[in-house]
Nucleic acid binder design. Structure first.
Lengths: 131, 131
DNA sequence: CAGAATCCCTCAAGATACTG
DNA sequence: CAGTATCTTGAGGGATTCTG
């Protein structure tokens, strides 16, 4: 009987062997930036579709510049689509794609981990800082 | 019958309501930095315990400064422990904690998503950039 | 061997102002 | 309303040198 290897579970070697070994880190860098996760979660919370000003209100503290930039990146990655309505005043709506929604599930894994373990992380930090 | 709500699945409202609404983003910022994921995965690949120079070799391109800094952060967060052996020449070993190992599982969710969808992201980027 | 110290540079992000 | 343009700052990270 084979031992239930930790490596089989995570397979980090496969990550390093993959055709694009940086993909995972690239993803995490994107998702880990200042506003992306808040914009994505807010967009989902708003029903998966919202206009610029709605998102601006839904994400407290974000500037127009950063919201615009974040949405542009999300659109570029195919995670949201941008729809412009030829009206006056202008209306632009952003909607999550299937790809974007599919990213919500693994994100949930991190959310759950954080909920379960953040206090322990905080305690470790306090203990470390006490030295 | 209730509609199977997307919100119930992800519950972003709960994130915003949580006692520390920034925790998830903080975590993602940490994990999303330049070297953390490579160090964590390499440490796991090396059996969950390794010394400084082993990690240096296992993570191509990392400098001593960044490896030291990354390990210090991981130690501060309670994800690895640092053990110093009073020898000459000095020997220092780093070992993943249970908390650190527990983070590998949700990370795997992101790894899987990336494997499954990165090509589509790349295609979206190319299409976007073509404009 | 396992770092710490120092210097330098780039870029993410904030502040503010302007516009079709 | 939905952005863009410009300027500025601070933190992350690279290169190099030094040391217990």
């Amino acid at each position: 009987m084979e031992k239930p290897s930790r490596i089989r579970q995570l397979d980090p070697a496969a990550i390093c062997r993959s055709s694009d070994p940086m993909a995972v880190r690239e993803l995490l860098t994107k998702v880990g930036d200042k506003w992306t996760i808040f914009v994505v979660l807010s967009l989902d919370l708003l029903g998966g579709r919202a206009r610029f000003s709605e998102l601006e209100r839904a994400v407290p503290g974000i500037s127009q510049r950063m919201l615009s930039s974040t949405l542009k990146n999300l659109e570029r990655d195919g995670l949201v689509v941008r729809e412009v309505f030829p009206e006056v005043p202008p209306r632009v709506e952003y909607e999550m794609t299937g790809l974007g929604r599919s990213l919500l599930l693994p994100t949930q894994g991190l959310v759950d981990w954080t909920k379960a373990n953040w206090e322990e992380v905080r305690r470790a930090q306090s203990k470390y800082d006490a030295k």
